[in-house]
């Protein structure tokens, strides 16, 4: 179990937390989405908001307490949620939080190489953060992008159809402070078949001749 899934040591924990005015506005809007008396449902979006606000992209214990107060619930109920869902980091991570999927489909498509490349490029192991605080690398379970396997998530973006080279390229760009283009790195669009679209070609501007005739009215 990664240290990110255990509360950060006391010396890293800030002593206070409050939403910024903009985030407080957002929080109010989020809370208002839920019916009267069900405000506790806002726990998860508020935790996310707190994580985005906190430097190091994590949820300190005081932030959980703050949310518990805001939603008038016992703090332990917020702790339970925050510790259950792995997307809430319980300890600070690097600016670029790299999550490489290593579940079966990605693994079959070579995720081991991606992990290896990341380790080599960053000089860190799984669950570690680079000394300059720029990168944290972890392995994760399926992120739901199997069709574009292998893939990784960096902060909010998916990088798919990875190879060792494209992974290296992405990391290099990030090191230089540039923003690599998110999505499939192989050139295909979204999750269409790797060798181009097979159906509805007219809609995507591909050769109309390849497309089967449109079914006539009444045909199934």
């Amino acid at each position: 179990m990664s240290h990110l899934r255990r509360p950060a040591p006391r010396e890293l924990q800030p002593t206070s937390f409050a939403f910024t005015p903009e985030n407080l506005e957002k929080a109010k809007k989020i809370i208002a989405k839920y019916p009267e008396g069900r405000q506790q449902s806002a726990t998860m979006p508020l935790l996310d908001l707190a994580q985005r606000q906190t430097e190091g992209n994590w949820v300190p214990t005081v932030a959980m307490d703050y949310i518990a107060d805001m939603l008038e619930m016992p703090a332990i109920r917020v702790y339970e949620v925050a510790t259950f869902y792995t997307m809430y980091n319980l300890a600070p991570v690097g600016q670029n939080f790299i999550q490489v999927c290593t579940t079966t489909p990605c693994w079959l498509r070579g995720s081991s190489d991606i992990v290896k490349t990341c380790k080599e490029e960053l000089g860190i192991g799984i669950g570690e953060t680079t000394e300059d605080g720029k990168f944290t690398l972890i392995e994760v379970e399926c992120l739901g992008a199997c069709v574009n396997a292998p893939m990784m998530q960096i902060n909010d973006d998916y990088y798919e159809d990875l190879t060792s080279d494209s992974t290296k390229n992405i990391i290099d760009m990030l090191k230089r402070g540039e923003t690599p283009k998110a999505g499939p790195q192989s050139g295909r669009r979204g999750c269409e078949p790797i060798d181009g679209p097979k159906v509805l070609k007219a809609f995507c501007g591909c050769a109309a001749a390849d497309q089967p005739a449109e079914p006539k009215d009444g045909e199934a």
């Binding site: 703090a75 332990i76 109920r77 702790y79 339970e80 510790t83 259950f84």
Partner: peptide
């Protein structure tokens, strides 16, 4: 502790195989 004692100290934190019953902090 939640229902009778009214102190929210105990909870089930973490998940799956790592689930622990206790107060988190």
């Amino acid at each position: 502790s939640e229902e009778v004692a009214g102190v929210g100290t105990m909870g089930a934190v973490y998940r799956g195989e790592d689930t622990e019953v206790g107060p988190y902090i």
